[in-house]
Computed example of a mutant assay.
Amino acid sequence: MMRILLFLGTNLAVLLIASITLKVLGVDRFTGQNYGSLLVFCAVFGFAGSLFSLFISKWMAKMSTGTEIISQPRTRHEQWLLQTVEELSRDAGIRMPEVGIFPAYEANAFATGWNKNDALVAVSQGLLERFSPEEVRAVLAHEIGHVANGDMVTLTLIQGVVNTFVMFFARIFGSIIDKTVFKTEEGHGPAYYITSIVAELVLGILATMIVMWFSRFREFRADDAGARLAGTGAMISALQRLRAEQNMQSQHMPDTLTAFGINSVKKSGIAQFFMSHPPLEERIEALRRRQH
């Protein structure tokens, strides 16, 4: 909770400073728009969708992946899975999350939830069938690392902030073009709406790059947490197995959960700036450096 309050407080301070700066520069007089009110409007809508998605993330994850929660273990494998997650959670200092298995051939896992003491960790059936117990444990440790680091909450708040500023600056650009180029004196003309839409698209692309950069950064942190909880060798082995299977994956998790999985589709060129995960080779190399 303190993480949330500090993060929100910092970004509300940024919004306030931006509003004051615009007033000092006279931008609101220049365009005839109250930017203080606009900031509040954009913040409400910018955060609303992200926070709502966070609060329903567990339900959405279960529904979209077909995850079956293990409430009472029916096999020794399920019993081992629960015991392993309980042990890792205790070592990480968090309450044990719900544990589930989702029916997918691809080797993957994810963690989600609105806070670290009310989370969900799930692994695919394919991962359980093909990975060794040590590798499965390392994957679980990686996901527990995400939960303990509060990555779901932080990523949601960052998304809310960039949403706010995309909406805010898109409307500033629209208003400036409308007033200065097309000389609209009252209200908003067609140029305002057209410019705002175009600006939102362009700024939205840049904002997505920022969010994905943070997503890649937190994968290294989760790998480090997994190495501390399950052993560096086991974490490297799990990532190497994921790399070996990259070319044989036939299906993927829903886009809304991709950032919370341990594996994602490798991209090249400019598309790599929109990857939620760093290349597995870079993650493995980072862990190898950790051994020395």
Results as ranks from 00 to 15, higher is better:
residue 3 R to N: 12
residue 8 L to P: 04
residue 9 G to E: 07
residue 11 N to K: 06
residue 13 A to P: 05
residue 15 L to D: 05
residue 15 L to P: 03
residue 17 I to M: 12
residue 19 S to K: 04
residue 27 V to S: 05
residue 32 G to Q: 11
residue 32 G to E: 08
residue 45 F to A: 14
residue 47 F to K: 06
residue 49 G to M: 11
residue 55 F to L: 12
residue 58 K to F: 02
residue 59 W to A: 13
residue 62 K to S: 03
residue 63 M to F: 13
residue 63 M to N: 11
residue 65 T to V: 00
residue 66 G to W: 04
residue 68 E to D: 13
residue 69 I to P: 10
residue 77 H to L: 15
residue 78 E to W: 09
residue 82 L to V: 10
residue 93 G to N: 10
residue 93 G to A: 03
residue 94 I to A: 03
residue 97 P to H: 07
residue 102 F to A: 02
residue 106 E to Q: 14
residue 108 N to K: 06
residue 112 T to G: 03
residue 117 N to R: 08
residue 118 D to L: 14
residue 122 A to E: 11
residue 128 L to H: 04
residue 135 E to R: 10
residue 137 R to S: 04
residue 140 L to F: 06
residue 145 G to D: 04
residue 146 H to S: 02
residue 146 H to K: 06
residue 147 V to S: 00
residue 147 V to H: 02
residue 148 A to Q: 08
residue 149 N to D: 13
residue 149 N to Y: 09
residue 157 L to Y: 06
residue 158 I to L: 15
residue 160 G to H: 05
residue 163 N to I: 01
residue 171 R to V: 00
residue 176 I to L: 15
residue 178 D to S: 07
residue 191 A to S: 11
residue 192 Y to A: 00
residue 195 T to W: 05
residue 199 A to T: 12
residue 218 R to E: 00
residue 220 F to R: 02
residue 225 A to K: 12
residue 233 G to H: 11
residue 235 M to Y: 00
residue 238 A to I: 05
residue 243 R to W: 03
residue 244 A to G: 09
residue 254 P to I: 11
residue 257 L to V: 02
residue 263 N to H: 14
residue 270 I to M: 11
residue 281 E to I: 12
residue 281 E to R: 14
residue 282 E to P: 07
residue 289 R to C: 03
